[in-house]
Design a protein around this nucleic acid. Sequence first.
DNA 1: CTTGTATTTGGAATAATATAACATTACAAG
DNA 2: CTTGTAATGTTATATTATTCCAAATACAAG
Lengths: 162, 162
Amino acid sequence: MNALGFEKHDHAHCMADGVASVAEACQAKGLQLTPVRRRVIEILLSEHRAMGAYEILDTLRAEGLGSQPPVAYRALDFLVKHGFAHKVERLNAFTACTYPGESHTPAFLICRECGAVVEAAAEPSKGDLGAAAEEAGFEIEQAVVEAEGLCPACRRKKAGGA
Amino acid sequence: MNALGFEKHDHAHCMADGVASVAEACQAKGLQLTPVRRRVIEILLSEHRAMGAYEILDTLRAEGLGSQPPVAYRALDFLVKHGFAHKVERLNAFTACTYPGESHTPAFLICRECGAVVEAAAEPSKGDLGAAAEEAGFEIEQAVVEAEGLCPACRRKKAGGA
DNA sequence: CTTGTATTTGGAATAATATAACATTACAAG
DNA sequence: CTTGTAATGTTATATTATTCCAAATACAAG
């Protein structure tokens, strides 16, 4: 589980790779990565934070790729459905998947200060949630695991500024 | 961790107890359990499911306790803030706390078929999320843990009806 | 190439969820 | 009584999301 995403990295590279891997996956599965869909995943990859549907829509609108809410929501639904993006329930916002291709339950670390979102992989069947489900006879199909708090950089700022 | 809440229980009893324990806790902490607040926690306790703010507001309105959204949201904010209720992010809805008084991170089991919601206690600092946070140097302040799937009763129905 | 079918898109309207802002009331402390 | 704090009433608006219908496009089968 690699969740070191808060620290610096080669962003242009990770973004290009991200789009490429989504394109490959679409080709492999016979999915249509249409211009709007491609652009939305690009937008999401371009920032390590969760973006609202309307924020994405604003960008699409400025680029002439669509101006009505359904345009953004349809693209996001496609991306989420096929595992290329996730919805962060806590924020009613969306973020590119860090581990596309691998089936997983995303676990998010959300910085309340700077808004950065980092994804780790979780296994809800283990841990407290899985134990509770088993005890109750509940069958888990999907899980939401999200933590809000302070990322390393914002912790340092707090400590320094205080 | 008791998450057997999907099975039958003495509901009138659990509801009366719930209101009483909230009232006691308010008294102990010097919090005002005003009519609207009391009624909202009663409404939430009366059903083992998550209810939308506007659904609650409809009831309040019918009873002359307030008719505008802020009335419901303020009462819910109070209840959530003091741990008497929780918000289920996945559903944008609210539910009474099953373990009032004990400080905890709620973990929800949400039946997608019948809408029942059962709360278990989780310890996000352990498990995948805690491990990821530690590795990333992230400080968790709050966590959302929610699972969607089938409750025991709905699983039986599925199995029987198929 | 044409046809049939499914998918995708465009766009208007509206639903559902949530908050901002400000005036008013209640009540206890000084 | 005055002042401070908390709670309420109310209007308006912001934000997030979906429904619905029509038009365009993609793509495989013939």
